[in-house]
Design a protein around this nucleic acid. Structure first.
Lengths: 338, 338
DNA sequence: CTGTTAGCGCATTCAC
DNA sequence: GTGAATGCGCTAACAG
């Protein structure tokens, strides 16, 4: 039974309205009474009841984040940024982890009603137009991360540019036989989440090839469910092609790790026999000396919260698009071909 | 402006109490009126306002979890179990990530006041007696995970037994020169979190050695801050000893990975030249064919929530200790010494 | 069985 | 400047 505003008021010899005023720095309170109230609060170790505040305020004072695969390093890192930033604010954070598309749909429907959260961050899960319509009229501010929709705020990177950047790096090293290893680009059966990043990176890859006058070879594009294990299998497949590639661009660092292992198992030296470049620059990439395209994951989380808080304070502001910079990080897994 | 209980009551032609009754399945409601109310709820797409419920209930209907290093695989996996289990319940989950001991102390002080959460799960962070006293009189139910205190509920494993198990496995293979690679056992400067698992695993290691009549060699115990990188350095140190070990027991799979890499860099074959065993069985361990001691991380999260919910329903129940089983998983990184 | 009423703890009009 | 009164949406006695 913690102290309530009534206890403070009584102890300070004032009305509850005055206590509320010093709590919210609202209106003017004579500094002598303010001090009396503050002394009473300290004496009683008073902390306003957040639930009552929400009730009276008509706001939930909480932010929700809907994310798939909570466990993948790239998602965890973004979440870490979000958590850190929200912890600094007056808001609570609730994480909704999505492991099936049913769960996603359920959350897309039930979370943004205004009763659970004031603001919502959605990571990597593209909403349909119908979803967006509901979001918009629900009055909860929404920020998309790593996915885009013109009617919603979004923190994104230019995946196509990143794919192009990675491929150009390999081309500049002299590679002509460049493979792209990714998760399925457009198969809703395998990937019901409609992730878009691998597709855009693929488009960048294709564009870079074209600009360099290198014809695309379909056998150089291999895709399977996102995992280190699957990536390893795909890499084996690539490396045992009659005319194998001299470089592999993996759509994520996790998949690049699988490719690295496949190379080792085939007794191929990296980068002497085969170059490998990843995408994301997750923590372990440094450690593996993996050349990769760095995207600022932690900062993405920070910026998402920042933008969301801004929207919460300025309702009705136009949806913003923030594109975070990409950076080629050259380490030790890429080199000119033999 | 979602529908409230009043709208439903009016539409169904009943009082709000009746609506509340069908909502909570309390008392008896004539089935005909119940149906009228339910129809009205559906027609209005009514969902009770969680904040108002909390207010009236005098409960927060939320569970908090305080965890360090949100990003390490073992923590993430436990969190995944916790999230999945909480999502099934009527409770919300708030994650408090701790990256400094100051943050830990702040959360230990501010979270369990009964105003923010009804129940609290604390992962790997041993509370002091003073902390425990505060927890106890705060009336929020608490469950410790991967750390212990006799006055609190706890889900743990027997780390000493695990350490012994790992070491015995190596001894049975014929090893006599067995190193232990871990994070600092007792240095609050390096590790202000007072993690206990590495210490207990060390004790199990020592015990197994003693039982086998193998003298402990202090140079065979190397410790540094928990990371793959540091572990690699430590492993290099061990392997370049005048009389190097033939087997390394790493206190975690992450550290075992560092040891694996060190071995490769020193052109040592695993397990022919050096055996390596880890601890935890995180996802990547399968993939690396790492022999390890498996602890049920995901299930730990499930059980923690289960126990917490039980305590929430049965306040005043005596603190329970649940010890989850460990299992030696023999894969391909351990073998008899040459 | 069902409707009325009194809080839950706080913010916020209004008067004073 | 400050206090008393009203309401946020719901639950839980209390009458009927």
């Amino acid at each position: 039974m913690p102290a309530t505003i009534y206890h403070v008021a009584k102890k300070a010899g004032v009305g509850i309205a005055t206590v509320s005023r010093v709590l919210n720095n609202s209106a003017n309170v004579r500094s002598s009474t303010r001090e009396r109230v503050e002394a009473a609060m300290r004496a009683l170790d008073y902390h306003p009841n957040p639930i009552a505040q929400r009730m009276a305020f008509g706001k939930t004072l909480t932010i929700g984040v809907i994310t798939p695969f909570f466990t993948r390093p790239a998602f965890v890192e973004r979440l870490r940024g979000i958590e850190a930033s929200v912890a600094e604010s007056e808001y609570d954070l609730i994480v909704y982890n999505v492991e099936t598309s049913e769960k996603r749909d359920a959350y897309f429907r039930s979370v943004p009603t205004g009763q659970r959260v004031d603001g919502l961050i959605i990571i990597s899960l593209p909403p349909t137009n119908a979803d967006v319509e509901r979001f918009l009229k629900s009055k909860v501010s929404t920020v998309l991360v790593d996915t885009s929709h013109s009617a919603l705020n979004r923190i994104i990177i230019d995946d196509a540019a990143g794919g192009r950047m990675a491929t150009q790096h390999l081309i500049q090293l002299g590679h002509r036989k460049i493979a792209y290893l990714s998760d399925p680009l457009n198969d809703p059966l395998v990937s019901p989440f409609r992730f878009t990043s691998s597709l855009y990176r693929y488009q960048g890859y294709r564009q870079a090839l074209e600009e360099a006058g290198i014809p695309f070879r379909s056998e150089y594009h291999q895709a399977a469910e996102h995992s280190r294990y699957q990536a390893r299998l795909l890499a084996h497949k690539l490396l045992s092609l009659p005319d194998p590639p001299t470089a592999i661009f993996a759509a994520s660092d996790t998949q690049a790790m699988g490719a690295l292992e496949a190379a080792h198992e085939d007794s191929l030296k990296v980068p002497e026999d085969i170059s490998i470049i990843g995408f994301d620059d997750i923590e372990i990439a440094t450690y593996l000396h993996l050349t990769t395209i760095r995207q600022p994951l932690y900062e993405t989380g920070l910026r998402a919260v920042e933008l969301l808080l801004f929207c919460l304070e300025h309702p009705g502001s136009r949806p913003q698009e923030i594109v975070l910079p990409l950076e080629l990080v050259v380490r030790e897994t890429t080199a000119p071909p033999k």
